[in-house]
Design a protein around this nucleic acid. Structure first.
Lengths: 351, 351
DNA sequence: ACGTTACACTTTATCGATTAACTTAGCAAG
DNA sequence: CTTGCTAAGTTAATCGATAAAGTGTAACGT
């Protein structure tokens, strides 16, 4: 019966009221450019005809604004949501972005770089939030040229970012462990191992082959190393930043003759896994084995894991502001961190 | 110098190669409508000129497809991300949606319904995933008329949904607790209390005033009630579905003369809070007090909380398929559930 | 009285791409 | 030799809205 096959658009309203389309448009986006009377009339007619505001697609095409902020998940498949750190960051981001009347678009990078690029180009976004490694990728650069603002969580000479001093974070952990007498440390990193190696002994030279320079992980390790000159530091790769991967990697590190006295997981999520691995082997964290993490996620507090606190939600908020507001003054922000000592670390056991 | 101020579009390519814009478009979206040779040429030229695929805005306007699936968070502000259930659902959704080459747009409903509507209408989406209560709202109906597919997590006569049998879930818990001899139960619901009441005794009649009919929570309570005919069931509202709110609500319920012998939290997140409240009061769950939840989130397993398992991630995946594929055959899906008995429930203590 | 502004709209020209409806040319079948 | 069909393109018409520039009053200052 009353089924309209044609959508109600600004044109419909304009015709019905005998005004121009522009005026209808202004009624929504520039209220001061027309009389209050007319505006009220237009809005009333809109309600009457069931018109519900400017179409996002039309607006996006003409004005170039989408009111959407992309969030690129690193680390692939379905693991992204398993890391509380990501989720907390996302919560803060979402909150800030919302204040600008915008929303967050989740972009999960497929394994292939080609595919990731495609996905990025296909997304209608005003800004994009990326992690450390990705900001070099060609697709990101293309986006920037298209006018998409890029905000990173890793520092760089130019560009916008919100970060922490990861090297310092590493130093704080290193100093703490050194004082406790640890000399044999296994670091658990999230990345997949390059070249098929299970693990390798760390030295700051020749790292670029194995860990991308400038990654938060490489920074943290370097800081650790600086404060533990006498220790043997072995790096093991977990594969993904999820608890289960941490458990496996830590398990392998513990099932050797000369067991390390401390495990430094490069994120709390991995540290939780290390905790699981210790439990399974009857080792009490803090007594038989020291375990530390980074980021201070809620579960770390619950289990009592020594870690580096950073204001993750606030980080997300700041990132959101940089992303949505081109005029936000501070565009390169380093947030404060703090060593939180809990029961999971203790004096190195004597063999 | 070589700075192009005009963006590279299909037109640029078409002119350079002396073909029509349509042909360039087809090179991307309908490869079988042109010769392989020409297609390769177009793609090569695209790479050369730095053209990176059809613009999302243009495509969206003309074709009406955005390859975006909206996800409407219920429960407002920043609490949305604190509930593992939401996150798991989101993970599954995101995974499925990705298979269709689309992404998920997070839409967080502000408190005011007006504002929510605005936000919804401004979003460029092909489909929208909503929770239980929201599907009635006027804004949602407008979206449907605009051609946005709506998928809900609550059942209804028409429409698409993926759900579980919440009444049955309640019955499973009820039967379990009744067998254990519990007669005095406090139910912790997530919603804010209506009319300023702290809590009230449940009876299936006259519920509509306090809990929306058809809400998963009201279903679960009803099921519980059916299997506990001899018990006194009191409902308390936590305010939000976060652990802390659960702790507060449970705390209030426990700090009375005639303490309940069982707390039935309507979600595991709230049950965790109840657990906290019990601990604080020196009560051992399963012995001094029974605590149960719903949904079986990882932390519930960790703490050993009796709960109803449902395949949340799979639920998310199915929702994603319904959202992105209009031809997906089953459009009203009820997933299986299972009672998981853990240590947090035990025989009612005798006074 | 004359130029200047402000106000409240209108006109026109796109934004970048897709769809539907047409051309051709080439080839097979009858 | 004609008809019919397919492959490979082209042309024209939008999709819905906004930006930039223009029009015509009315009020204002001097």
């Amino acid at each position: 019966m009353g089924e309209k096959l044609t959508a109600v658009t600004m044109k419909t309203l304009a015709n019905k009221l005998g005004v121009s389309i522009t005026t209808v448009s202004n009624a929504y986006s520039k209220p001061d450019r027309l009389s209050t009377d007319l505006r009220d009339q237009i809005l009333a007619t809109a309600k009457e005809l069931g018109y519900c505001g400017p179409s996002a697609a039309g607006r996006a095409l003409r004005s170039g604004k989408t009111d959407v902020c992309g969030f690129l998940f690193h680390g692939g498949v379905s693991h992204a949501f398993s890391d509380p750190y990501s989720i907390m960051l996302l919560a803060g981001l979402s909150e800030a972005v919302e204040e600008y009347g915008a929303s967050v678009l989740l972009l999960r990078a497929p394994a292939a770089e080609e595919a990731t690029n495609q996905m990025l180009q296909r997304a209608a976004i005003d800004a994009l939030v990326v992690g450390s490694a990705e900001r070099q990728e060609s697709g990101i650069e293309q986006l920037r040229q298209r006018g998409v603002r890029i905000v990173s969580t890793a520092p760089s000479a130019d560009g916008d970012w919100v970060t922490i001093n990861d090297a310092k974070a590493g130093r704080l952990i290193g100093k703490h462990l050194a004082r406790l007498g640890h000399r044999q440390v296994v670091v658990i990193a999230s990345g997949a191992s390059k070249g098929g190696m299970e693990s390798f002994d760390y030295s700051p030279d020749g790292m670029d082959d194995r860990l991308f320079a400038g990654t938060y992980e490489s920074e943290r390790i370097r800081g650790l190393w600086e404060k533990m000159p006498d220790a043997r530091i072995t790096v093991a790769f977990a594969g993904h930043c999820i608890r289960e991967s941490g458990r496996r990697a830590a398990g392998q590190a513990l099932d050797v003759q000369d067991r390390p006295t401390a495990i430094v997981a490069l994120s709390d999520t991995l540290a939780l896994g290390a905790w699981d691995a210790a439990q399974e082997r009857g080792l009490t964290p803090g007594r038989d084995l020291s375990i530390s993490g980074f980021d201070d996620i809620p579960d770390a507090r619950f289990l009592g894991i020594t870690t580096i606190h950073q204001p993750v939600t606030e980080k997300g908020r700041l990132i959101g502001r940089l992303a949505m507001d081109p005029d936000y003054p501070d565009r390169q922000i380093t947030l404060p961190i703090e060593l939180i000592v809990r029961a999971s670390t203790g004096p190195a056991p004597k063999n």
